[in-house]
């Protein structure tokens, strides 16, 4: 009997890997630091997901229940891996709660951390209650409370969504594109227009990166069917005239400064490396890349490999990632880990 595969992190990538391994008859031990499984879509209360438009609690909730209900998967909640030693086929992990776990291979699906908008003070988050993040709007939608200005509960007449908050910004050491925010923002803009038809939604952008098939379903649809307006400008600052928020910037397509009132400003926040990545790197002995994500050693020959044999990685632990790609990567990592625990000798013989 082979040793189980240790999966660290119970988000979409981890859930997908656990299900794939269990389906192949492989034992799995899953460790999740929060008190429930599901990762960012569940913990942060996302609303309808891209691209299926299913509610996160249904789509990801289904992934959670099929893992929780599987006898081959042992789940440890509310704890983290404290120590990790050994070699491929024979790892020993010690959890914070003292429990010791033997594992044949490990998959890190430790995910990301939402960018904290307080780090861009010029855009008013933390200063004005009506400046919110995409995550907060997701929660307004998913909780059924509806989109309302936090300051006084009124329904906004004008909403501005600022893209690239915490992405593509050397000033705050984040040079990456977070990949999903354009599409998520277009999705949120459509949901706002649907629930508040008299509300005008403006998206302030530098580039629109609704890649692949999202172009038609999100960018084009939001413009053509929902009349969301896109303005090419990186906003300089968000202030207030005492009543409404004042958004200042330059409309670069007509070379004109703008200073326009809004009821609500939404930051399309990016994906930071998991704040615990330094610890994760030290505990598991895996390298981080220059951006602070877990480094993948190979792009083409082997998926999901880190610098440490037997420790694999998948999902947004490796960089900004979509939910569906995280799920695919989880399965790829599961395949690599399965091969490792079933055929450890081949590795040694080479």
């Amino acid at each position: 009997m082979t040793k189980p595969v240790l999966i660290v992190g119970g988000g979409p990538a981890g859930l997908s890997a656990a299900h794939a391994l269990a389906s192949a008859g492989q034992k799995v031990v899953m460790v999740e630091k929060e008190d429930r499984l599901g990762g960012a879509p569940i913990l942060s209360g996302y609303a309808k997901l891209v691209p299926s438009h299913e509610w996160a609690k249904d789509a990801i909730g289904g992934m959670v229940s099929r893992v929780e209900g599987n006898d081959l998967v042992e789940v440890h909640l509310g704890t983290i891996v404290d120590k990790f030693d050994g070699n491929p086929g024979d790892f020993k992990a010690t959890l914070k709660n003292g429990k010791a776990i033997e594992a044949g291979a490990t998959i890190l699906t430790t995910g990301f951390t939402h960018f904290d908008s307080v780090n861009k003070p010029e855009w008013g988050f933390g200063t004005y209650p009506d400046v919110v993040t995409t995550t907060q709007v997701e929660q307004m939608l998913s909780s059924g409370a509806g989109v309302k200005c936090p300051s006084d509960g009124r329904e906004p007449d004008r909403v501005a969504i600022l893209l690239c908050v915490g992405s593509r910004d050397r000033q705050i050491g984040r040079e990456w594109c977070s990949k999903i925010c354009c599409t998520v923002s277009a999705n949120i803009a459509m949901e706002i227009r649907e629930s508040l038809p008299n509300c005008n939604v403006y998206i302030y952008y530098m580039d629109i990166r609704t890649f692949g098939l999202y172009e038609g379903d999100y960018y084009w649809a939001s413009q053509e069917e929902y009349k969301v307006k896109y303005i090419k400008a990186r906003i300089a600052e968000v202030t207030s005239d005492g009543k409404r928020l004042l958004v200042k910037g330059e409309d670069t397509l007509v070379k004109r400064p703008i200073s326009i009132p809004f009821d609500m400003v939404v930051h399309a926040i990016g994906m930071d490396p998991n704040v615990d990545n330094m610890t994760i790197s030290a505990v598991f002995g895996v390298d981080l890349n220059k951006y602070g994500y877990v480094n993948k050693t190979s792009t083409y020959a082997h998926l999901a490999e880190t610098n440490r044999p037997g420790v694999f990685v998948a999902g947004s632990a490796t960089g900004p990632e979509t939910i569906d790609d995280s799920i695919a990567q989880g399965q790829a990592a599961a395949m690599a880990a399965l091969n490792m625990v079933r055929n450890p000798v081949l590795e040694a013989a080479e």
Partner: peptide, 13 residues
């Protein structure tokens, strides 16, 4: 004099 845009006429389109 300022050339800043201070509002949009949302009916024009």
């Amino acid at each position: 004099e300022t050339r800043a845009i201070s509002d949009y006429n949302e009916d024009l389109q």
